[in-house]
Simulated scan of single mutants.
Amino acid sequence: MVKLKGKAASVVFDQVSKIYPGATTPAVNDVSFEIDAGSLVTLLGPSGCGKTTTLRMIAGLEMPTSGRVLIGGSDVTPLPATERDVSMVFQSYALFPHMTVLENVSYGLRFSGYPKREIATRAADGLALVGLTGFEARFPSELSGGQQQRVAVARALVLEPQVLLFDEPLSNLDAKLRRRVRDEIRELQQKLGLTVVYVTHDQGEALAVSDRIIVMDRAVIAQQGTPQELYDAPATAFVADFIGESNILPCEIIAVNGGTANVRLGPVALALPARGLRPGPARLAVRPHRVRLAAADAPNALPATVAKSTYAGSHLEVAVTTELGALFVVSPETGTPLAPGASVALVIPTEGTVLLVA
């Protein structure tokens, strides 16, 4: 019977910055957030945005230049990795090639001084959790990429950490295997009630596994929220474009009444949540699948000319030009071919179209 359980703890960053020696700009700049115990939170962003440095400061592998890191309400800022109840699964898995699966999973327990009988029990429980019972005597070279990933997860889980950290855990796997392993990680996290901090640059991965997402850009937090909040209501053009594709268009806020903005998008009139903005020039974001292709004479629609139309099986991918610039549209109407140069109109919905606050 599997007995392993999590000792989930919250994680708090309080105005944390990290400047490496000799650097002219911070790797992490005045970052604050709180991760609830028992939740899975993803640090998402492009290379160099500061997400891995943030993860390493939670682990104690990097020390902040300023600010505080708290785990379970305790200030762990000055503590090294060996004195934090945290386990990390690395991008490379970091398995010992000369050790068997059982020896790899047991390594941290032996290093921590657990009795032999407890080591054996915990290691067996860890392998059962990740579905690798019977693989104890194999070496890493005899395992698939997905199985190696599971060994790395089991090795971290057997220590029953307060916080489990993943650094780009699926980047070495093919697309199909990535989907399966990410689902396994999420299932384990929920089953054991673990606090998990997960780093990735893959927005689809982040949307699929996270309770909350912290989007980072150039060493700061661009926006944080639930996957649906970030997808449906991005605050900035960066977030709108990074969390799924978006068409970013110039518009004019004509008036604001209460919390509603009357917006002019070329010839199109829209009423959108004002999000604290005032009348004047602005920008909005609309997802490609939200835009509807219509006949050229459709009312309250944006005239467009088809530049390219690509059949993608379940949908058409259509590039169009308009007076406001180029747009990308995903249309489910696969039965109607669209020739380059054809005149169409774009119906911009109120739902899913958002004003950008920055």
Results as ranks from 00 to 15, higher is better:
123 A>E: 02
127 L>K: 03
142 E>D: 11
123 A>S: 15
182 R>G: 08
52 T>V: 08
197 V>D: 04
209 V>K: 12
308 K>F: 14
281 P>C: 03
70 L>D: 04
172 N>K: 03
181 V>Y: 04
92 S>R: 11
257 N>Q: 14
209 V>A: 11
340 P>Y: 01
46 P>R: 03
146 G>D: 10
57 M>H: 04
113 G>Y: 09
53 T>L: 07
10 S>G: 15
157 L>E: 05
192 L>T: 11
303 P>E: 12
145 G>H: 01
229 E>F: 05
44 L>E: 03
240 A>P: 04
155 R>K: 06
247 N>Q: 10
10 S>E: 15
17 S>G: 03
244 G>A: 05
289 H>Y: 14
255 A>G: 09
237 A>M: 13
342 A>M: 12
111 F>R: 13
141 S>G: 10
295 A>E: 15
143 L>E: 06
96 F>H: 05
237 A>P: 10
220 V>D: 01
35 I>Y: 06
156 A>D: 10
354 V>M: 02
278 R>N: 06
324 L>A: 09
84 R>D: 05
46 P>W: 01
94 A>H: 09
123 A>G: 07
324 L>Q: 07
55 L>D: 03
237 A>G: 15
32 S>P: 09
92 S>L: 01
127 L>I: 06
234 P>L: 01
33 F>D: 07
62 E>W: 03
272 L>H: 12
240 A>Y: 05
66 S>P: 00
355 L>R: 02
10 S>V: 13
153 V>R: 01
129 L>P: 02
174 D>C: 01
125 D>K: 07
4 L>W: 08
286 V>A: 02
154 A>P: 00
10 S>C: 11
295 A>C: 04
218 R>V: 07
81 A>F: 00
268 V>H: 05
146 G>S: 13
16 V>T: 00
93 Y>R: 09
310 T>G: 06
114 Y>R: 14
20 Y>R: 08
45 G>F: 14
149 Q>L: 11
